[in-house]
Design a protein around this nucleic acid. Sequence first.
DNA 1: CGCGGCCTTGAGCCCTATCAAGGCAAGTGG
DNA 2: CCACTTGCCTTGATAGGGCTCAAGGCCGCG
Lengths: 248, 248
Amino acid sequence: MTVPLSTPVGHRGYADVRIRAVRDRPRQPGEEAPHIALSASERAELGRLAQIIDFRTAGSLIFPQGGDANFVYLLRAGLVRICHSLRNGERQVVAFHWPGDLFGLTEETKYVNSAETVTPARVYRFQAAKLESFLLKNPKIQDRFLIKAIHDLRHAQRQIIVMGRFDIPRRLGIFLIDCSAHETYFDQSTRVLTVPMNRYDIADYLGTSAETVTRAFTRLERAGLLRRVTARAIELKPEKLKTFVNFE
Amino acid sequence: MTVPLSTPVGHRGYADVRIRAVRDRPRQPGEEAPHIALSASERAELGRLAQIIDFRTAGSLIFPQGGDANFVYLLRAGLVRICHSLRNGERQVVAFHWPGDLFGLTEETKYVNSAETVTPARVYRFQAAKLESFLLKNPKIQDRFLIKAIHDLRHAQRQIIVMGRFDIPRRLGIFLIDCSAHETYFDQSTRVLTVPMNRYDIADYLGTSAETVTRAFTRLERAGLLRRVTARAIELKPEKLKTFVNFE
DNA sequence: CGCGGCCTTGAGCCCTATCAAGGCAAGTGG
DNA sequence: CCACTTGCCTTGATAGGGCTCAAGGCCGCG
């Protein structure tokens, strides 16, 4: 039996669990900023439940839409897109996930969306049933999961606002600003964003077409809000962009 | 000091807590279908934490966007819209809430959106800090809140798909089908939906304008998918509508 | 060096936003 | 009981943003 290139790679050893979310109330003095505080022992306990899986290639399928949902996933490294395919073949990218994000939304034991890697990625995988019973015994950790779910809900509602009331150049501007929050892809000193996904991914996330995304780039560039060093390396003018999109 | 008509009315007595959500796994034989199972004692415990408030008029403000977020709300009766206002004055209706729904999303102790009644409504109000510490001591109830949050997340992602990939007539069709799930407003025998919100609310929910909503109604009617008995009483052809929207 | 995937640009058309006006129904005051 | 107001709904005309189809350019890789 041969192993295709996209086959995930399992690992031994304990997972180092970190969850990305912002509390709904001000952070405590010692609390880690963009990630939720888990104590060392909590992380260790959770880590023992997790299975580590590496996806070595971009475009790997983590789980398919409609597939049996036995696992909940936590992204440790890399970038993941969550896609929903419609009957007519159109696709909506429901979310991009960055390190620290949980994913694997289900309905009636089936995954609602598919999850695919945008870059090579490492994920932690939890058996759903085991995780649920574990959380019931660990209210403090369960509380973190609740906070994370609410964080994601807030983000989804924000995306509804963006899709409902902003034209495409503005949606793109908001998207680029969001991307620039991730240091792996944004160089603070040069202000160059290395866009990890292609125009189709961006288009399907913003509810438009790849051509229109390109045209939006062109317009933002002409307006002096960014500069395309290459198609995937974008030098941003964050202040001007924020003024232009006029959101939050 | 006079009491404006829209003033909420407080009540004594215990709240009867019911949370509307679908589990992510098949329901147990005895489990109540569209609502989450809470035992009588759990409901009683939660009920003791709640304050009951009645809003007697449509259009009452429950809390404002940007206001200090001290409470989490649970809708017991009536209909509530969650609105987000943009700097340019445009408005996006982020969600409609039906009985059993929780609302009051916050960020940094401020409400992210405003909440307003669409009909007279009764809500239960929980002090956020008290509720959180209560949930930490009651993992089973906390689990229900987590399930509810995930339920709402799923719904928000679904709305992203709708706004990203469906034209306005189809969005309206999906919306009407969703409304018809609520027996208070949909007469199963006559198939007449009493739409509780006006064209502007619908428009701001679907990411369009009131005129376009009317035009979408006209088109659906011409196609024989519904019949406007009055502007607010719509006789649906559910099967035809579902075929037309071709979603889920 | 040639191929394939991705990005960009152009042309034409359609859907939807916007502006404008008229209709309808409920509520108010004379 | 009727004129009047007001909020909501509907329809028309027009303009424009974005989609679709098409073609050409770029770049990394085998």
